[in-house]
Design a protein around this nucleic acid. Structure first.
Length: 600
RNA sequence: GCGCCCUUAGCUCAGUUGGAUAGAGCAACAGCCUUCUAAGCUGUGGGUCGGUGGUUCGAAUCCACCAGGGCGCGCCA
């Protein structure tokens, strides 16, 4: 039988409608939906087909709906189809065809719900891309989880996904990092230079990243190189003598720390691309050359921005990209005053590289502070894509809003200076990987969220992490008990997949079956919308349906899953329980959360 | 000043891309449970979907304007 009941029913609807109204344009047919009903009294599914067909057919919706209902009702597997409301057709499936989803789940395992909407489209998801200048903090964490879950979701929906991390290792930031590490290195050698004295040596005259997390880096540098990077008095040497080395050492250290953090979070990228490499390989120059060849570059002077502090602004001619031709607000500079590429220029090269490697869709998962970057990147991709690929290439951004961390109901202030800045490591230590990942996905990405540390570890109904894992643990508990009992036969998925299911008739049971049947649809919708949080909400609903069923047995022992007196009906229920557990695992796998066998 | 995002129940948030009477959890209220499945359960109340217009069979959803909040606005990344 069909693994996606909605898709097959939709096929029936389209077929029947074609008989009633021939020659409907594809634009209308493609908008036909078969959706779950909100109200069980409306049957299992509803379709808007008659409403859509009414206008082109110049007939009344109700008339078409009636004819459609008649045709559908005659089909095998459909118990009834009735016209309702302004022109909907409500469809009630036979219990048999509804329940047929269970053996499908048991056969396919957590692959149930895998979809084909991706159609093998090659999609590159770039996420995290935190600067390698410090440890990851909660701000990075949301993007990491959203990006990772999105990539998993897209894979499940049939896209060919590359998970990618862009290492910003070429700019002034990493030089600033190297200077601080060098300062810490001298400190490790026993040279305590006052900040002011050392800063006088630094280009720009200020130390960034003075956080204590760089002390071990300086110490490691001293352990590796001894006094070789300082003069005989252990005082600073000219930067030519050490800067490259210290920069590479620091980058290496930071990147390793970030990768460790990511590993703890369960995030694993397929590709790390280095900005310096993009530069060294000439990829950035190549892309800029293509823009130039297309006549999209010019030397010009930008208007000063309005309403912003413009104290240090001065008119200056620079190399500009005609972003306004592609929908951006202003043309964008590609060279800095010192002649080096802007970050944007290198990023154009990088995105060109992603296209050259075969991506059809480029998704950037960005923090809210990069929201202003989206329109220029979109215009750049639109400008360069035709020179890299014959196929259309899409650029999309998923913007992740700020996360406020709450402890005891109070906001935890994030401040590097005050030393209360919450690292990803802190967060993981506090609540654990599963709670971090799941909780980060309980809001849509573009809404600000509060992360309540107490709630994330609470074992109560209002903690969705707990609630969903508890549902899975209860499923497993029932199945273990059934196996130990021995009177119900084999309880593996294959055996349960062959069980007669006619005894599953109670409304809460069928509600759970309907929910399970909806899983492939959720995957498809969430993947197309790039919204992994929908999976988290679905799992909460699924858990809710299961807990409702479980709770029936609390007051009335005859409604429990395991009934010695009726082994056949029990086996049918076990099939339902096994299918539920399977779909929960299937969903948790997308979110990157571990299912648990038992709670304690 | 301009651009993007957000505004839904007292609180935190969903709302299946324009569908039927707008949902969930918490909180509130009422009842149940003193553990064979209560790290609780059942039920009730609660809404001008920020505001005003528009588009159409139909709007929380699309468009315009307005209000409030967030982010951003050359040579940072």
């Amino acid at each position: 039988m069909a693994e996606n009941l909605f898709a097959t029913t939709r096929n029936h609807v389209v077929e029947a409608l074609r008989q009633i109204v021939p020659d409907l344009p594809d634009a209308v047919l493609s908008r036909i939906e078969v959706t779950p009903t909100r109200d069980p009294s409306h049957g299992d599914m509803a379709t808007n087909a008659a409403l859509l067909a009414a206008k082109p057919a110049r007939r009344k919706p109700a008339e078409i709906a009636a004819a459609l209902a008649g045709a559908l009702a005659a089909l095998e597997g459909i118990d009834s189809a009735v016209a309702a409301g302004p022109g909907f057709v409500n469809i009630t499936l036979s219990a048999d065809s509804l329940r047929a989803v269970l053996p499908a789940v048991l056969r396919e395992g957590i692959a149930f719900g895998d979809g084909a909407v991706g159609a093998g489209t090659r999609i590159n998801v770039e996420y995290v891309s935190a600067n390698p200048t410090g440890p990851m903090h909660v701000g990075h964490c949301r993007g990491a989880v959203v990006g990772d879950a999105l990539a998993n979701l897209l894979t499940k929906a049939g896209f060919a996904v590359t998970k990618e991390y862009y290492v910003n290792d070429a700019g002034a930031q990493v030089l600033a990092l190297a200077w601080v590490v060098y300062w810490r290195y001298l400190e490790a050698l026993g040279t305590k230079m006052p900040e002011a004295e050392f800063e006088a040596l630094v280009p720009g005259g200020a130390l960034q990243y003075r956080g204590e997390y760089l002390i071990p880096v300086g110490e490691a540098l001293a352990a590796r190189h001894g006094g070789a990077l300082a003069d005989a008095d252990r005082r600073p040497l000219p930067e030519e003598r050490w800067l490259d080395l210290v920069r590479d050492f620091s980058l290496d250290w930071m990147l390793r720390a970030i990768r460790e953090d990511l590993a703890l979070l369960g995030v694993r990228h397929d590709v790390f691309t280095s900005e310096r490499e993009i530069l060294a390989r000439g990829v950035a120059d190549e892309a800029i050359g293509r823009l130039d060849a297309a006549g999209l570059l010019y030397e010009g002077v930008l208007e000063p921005p309005k309403g912003k502090m413009t104290a240090d602004w001065e008119a200056r001619p620079q190399t500009l990209f005609r972003a306004t031709q592609f929908g951006d607000d202003v043309d964008r500079p590609l060279r800095k005053a010192d002649g080096a590429n802007t970050y944007f220029a290198n990023d154009i090269g990088y995105h060109g590289d992603k296209i050259a490697r075969g991506a059809d869709v480029l998704v950037d998962v960005l923090g809210a502070d990069h929201g202003g970057y989206v329109s220029r990147m979109r215009s750049a991709v639109a400008a360069i894509a035709p020179s890299y690929s014959d196929r259309p290439v899409a650029f999309e951004a998923v913007i992740c809003q700020i996360v406020h961390v709450l402890k005891d109901g109070q906001p935890v202030r994030m401040s590097k200076r005050a030393g209360t800045f919450v690292t990803l490591r802190d967060l993981l230590d506090e609540v654990g990987r599963d709670a971090v990942r799941f909780t980060m996905l309980t809001r849509k990405p573009d809404a600000q969220m509060e992360f309540d540390l107490d709630l994330a570890v609470a074992q109560t109904r209002d903690n969705p992490v707990f609630y969903v894992q508890y549902a899975h643990a209860r499923c497993r508990s029932v199945l273990r008990a059934a196996a130990e009992n021995g009177g119900f036969g084999a309880v593996d998925a294959a055996s349960l997949g062959a069980v007669p299911l006619g005894s599953l008739q109670a409304e809460p049971e069928l509600a759970l079956v309907r929910r399970i049947a909806n899983w492939p649809r959720v995957i498809e919708g969430a993947a197309l919308a790039r919204e992994p949080h929908r999976v988290a909400f679905y799992l909460n609903d699924l858990a809710s349906d299961f807990h409702a069923l479980w709770n029936r047995g609390r007051d009335d022992a005859t409604l429990r899953f395991l009934q010695d007196a009726e082994p056949e009906a029990t086996r049918a229920r076990l099939a339902l329980v096994e299918a539920t557990a399977t779909v929960i695992r299937s969903g948790l796998a997308v979110l990157g959360v571990e299912p648990v066998e038992e709670m304690r």
